[in-house]
Design a protein around this nucleic acid. Structure first.
Lengths: 347, 347
DNA sequence: TTGTACGCGTTATCAC
DNA sequence: GTGATAACGCGTACAA
C-alpha cells in the first residue's frame, strides 16, 4: 500500500491534519514544522491521493470531453487533434487533466455525459461541435453545470460561455475577396446544416453576395459532410447541374481537397478555371496542389481558450457567461485568381 | 447535493449496503428487493459516485495516457489521433475512460506519470512511443504497475506487454519489393534512431539488401524527424551527397510527403526517376501526388488492442506479459516502378 | 437475505 | 499554530 498522510504524520510527530495543511501550504503553520513535514514527505516518497482528495473536497481537477466516435466525421478531420492539443495545454497550465470518453450514437454520448457529471468525475465539460438541437447542451445548461462550447451554441448564445471565430465575418470577407477578383458566379460548399458553424459561414457568404448586388443561385449552394468525400460529391452535383461557378467558398480544407481531386479528374484546373478558398488552414491546405488559400481559424487557440475559460468558470461559478472570439486570418496561397473571362480584359 | 446511496436506502426502506449490493448486482439479494431498489434509484435519478467508489474499491476504471506536447513530432502526425481513437474505443468497450495529461519536457512527462499513478488516478497506463532509454518505462516496470506499450520496448521485450507490428519483416518485405522491381540503389529515410520503430525498420531494410547481395551504402541511409520537414531535408542531404538512389524506403508517410515535395522542386519525378514506399498509410498517403505505396500498419487496431490488453492485465494482474503483433498490409499505389535504366531493357 | 460498522485517504470544522 | 474529529459516498467483512 502506498504511503499516506497518516504515515507522514506519524513519522513527523504531528497530526494528519497538520500534514494536510502543509500540503495546502496553509499560512497558519510554522515554517519549522512545514520544513520538518516536507522533509518526511520527501523521505517517504509521499504522493497525495487525488481520489481521496476529490472525495473530501468535492472537486476533481479534471475536465470532461466526449470524443466523437472514430467513425465520425469530426474525428477524421485534423481539426480534432489540434483542438485537443489546445485543450490539454490549457488544462495543463492550471493543473487540470482531461477526462475522455467516446460515444458512437447521440444517445451513448448523452449517457456518457450524464454519468461523467453525476458520477462526479469532472468539474466541468467541453462541448465540441454544437448542433442545432443539442440535448447534451440543454442538459448541462439546465443542470447549471460548468461547461463551455467550442463554436457557437444555436440558442441562448448570451447565457452560454463559448469560444468561437467570427465565422460570419470571415465568410463574408473571403467571399468579398473573390468578388474583388472579379468573380460573380460564386458557389458555396458547406457541411451539415445542423452544425451552427455551417450556418454562420453560409450567412456570411450570402451577405457578401447581397451587398455586392449579386443574386443568389440555389444550384451553387451545396451541403455535405465535412470530409473529403463530401467535397467530391459536391463537385459531381455541381457538374450534373450544368451550372459551374467560377469560384467556390468551401467550408473546410478536407472538403476542399475532395473538390480539388474531383476537379482534377474532370480536367478543370485550379485556379485557372476555378478559384477556391476554404476554411481551417490545417496542414493539408498547404500541401494541396495547388496550395489552398484558406482561413486560418486558429484551432489550437480555440481549444486553449476554451480550457482556460472553463477552468475560470469552475473556480468562479458566479461569473457571467462570456463569449470569446478567436481572431482568424486569411492565408493567401495559390488557389485563387481572376476569372478566365476577365483575365485578358483588365490590362 | 446529488442523491446518494443513503437517500435511496431510506426511501426504499433498506440499508445502504443493500443498495450497494443491488448496484453490484449481487446474487445474494432477492429479486424482489432488487426490483424495489432499482425502482427508487430510477425515480430519484440516482447515479453512483465514481470518486467514492474508486476510493472504497481502490480502482478507478480509468487508463492513463500522456499526450506528447502539441509542439512535438508525434503529435503533428496523423498517427496520433488514430491510435487515440483505437484506445478510446477499446477502453469504452470495457467501460473504462481515458485520463490524459500533456508534458512538454521528458521530465514533465515523467512527473506526470508518477503523480498519475501514485495519486491513484488510473489503474493502468498506455505508453505511446518507446524510446531507447525510457525512464517512464523503467519506472512502471520496477513499480510493477500495469502498463502496455504501443511499439516495441527497447529491452525486456519478453517481460513487457506490448502491441506492435512486425516492423522488421515489413521493412524487409517492402525492400524486397523494390529489389524485385529491379532496383539496386535503394535508400532508407527513417526517424530518430532513439525510436525503436526506426531501428526495426532499418534492420529489415538492411537484411533485405544483404540477402539480395547488395552492399550497404552509408550515404543512402538518413535519419531525421518523423515530419514533413524531415523528409525535405533528407532529400537535400541526398542531393548534396551527389549519390542519388533510384528507390527509397521512407519510414513514415509524412516524411515521404516531404520527400515528394522536395523532389518535385528539383524536377525529379516519382515514380519515373525515383520509386518510393513508405509506412503507416495514413490519409495523406492516398492523397499525395502520386499516391504513395505504403505499409498499412493498422494504427487503429494498435490502439484498440493496446487498450484491450491493458484492461486484461489490470483485471488479471498475474497473467504473464504478452506480445501482440498487429498484421500489416502493403498497399500498392503509384509511387513505384522499375528503375529507368532497366525500363527499356526488359521487354 | 439483509443490516451494522468500519475503512478508503483526504479536507474542513471545531476546539485548545 | 496545532490536534481531534467528523464528513465525503461507497464497498465489504462480519453479524444477525
Amino acid at each position: 500500500m502506498a504511503v499516506t498522510i497518516k504515515d507522514v504524520a506519524k513519522i513527523a510527530n504531528v497530526a494528519p491534519s497538520t500534514v494536510s495543511r502543509v500540503i495546502a501550504n496553509s499560512p497558519r503553520i510554522s515554517e519549522k514544522t512545514k520544513e520538518k513535514v516536507r522533509e518526511v514527505m520527501h523521505q517517504l516518497g509521499y504522493h497525495p491521493n487525488f481520489i481521496a482528495r476529490s472525495l473530501a473536497s468535492q472537486s476533481t481537477q479534471a475536465i470532461g470531453l466526449i470524443m466523437p466516435s472514430s467513425t465520425d466525421i469530426v474525428f477524421q478531420n485534423p481539426f480534432f487533434p489540434i483542438v485537443l492539443g489546445g485543450l490539454s495545454e490549457g488544462a495543463q497550465a492550471k493543473q487540470y487533466v482531461l477526462h475522455m470518453t467516446t460515444g458512437k450514437t447521440d444517445h451513448e454520448i448523452y449517457e456518457g455525459v450524464v454519468s461523467m457529471i453525476q458520477g462526479g468525475r469532472v468539474d466541468g465539460m467541453i462541448l465540441l461541435s454544437s448542433k442545432v438541437e443539442d440535448k447534451v447542451l440543454s442538459y448541462l445548461h439546465e443542470q447549471d453545470f460548468p461547461f463551455v462550447v467550442i463554436g457557437k451554441p444555436f440558442k441562448d448564445t448570451e447565457s452560454i460561455t463559448h469560444v468561437d471565430n467570427d465565422n460570419f465575418k470571415a465568410a463574408r470577407e473571403v467571399t468579398n475577396y473573390l468578388i474583388s477578383l472579379g468573380h460573380e458566379k460564386i458557389g458555396f460548399i458547406g457541411g451539415d446544416l445542423n452544425l451552427v458553424v455551417t450556418v454562420d459561414r453560409l450567412l456570411g457568404y450570402e451577405k457578401a453576395l447581397e451587398e455586392a448586388g449579386i443574386p443568389l443561385t440555389s444550384e451553387y449552394i451545396i451541403h455535405n459532410q465535412f470530409l473529403r468525400e463530401g467535397g467530391r460529391e459536391a463537385v459531381q452535383i455541381l457538374l450534373s447541374s450544368g451550372a459551374m461557378p467560377t469560384a467556390l467558398v468551401v467550408a473546410d480544407d478536407l472538403m476542399a481537397l475532395g473538390v480539388l481531386n474531383a476537379l482534377d479528374e474532370v480536367g478543370i484546373s485550379v485556379p485557372e478555371d476555378l478559384s477556391i478558398v476554404s476554411f481551417n488552414n490545417v496542414m493539408i491546405a498547404e500541401m494541396a496542389k495547388p496550395p489552398l488559400t484558406s482561413v486560418d481559424i486558429n484551432i489550437f487557440n480555440l481549444g486553449f481558450e476554451a480550457a482556460k475559460s472553463l477552468i475560470q468558470k469552475i473556480e468562479n461559478p458566479n461569473e457571467p457567461a462570456k463569449r470569446i472570439i478567436i481572431p482568424y486570418e486569411i492565408v493567401e496561397r495559390l488557389s485563387c485568381s481572376e476569372p478566365k473571362a476577365k483575365k485578358g480584359s483588365t490590362p
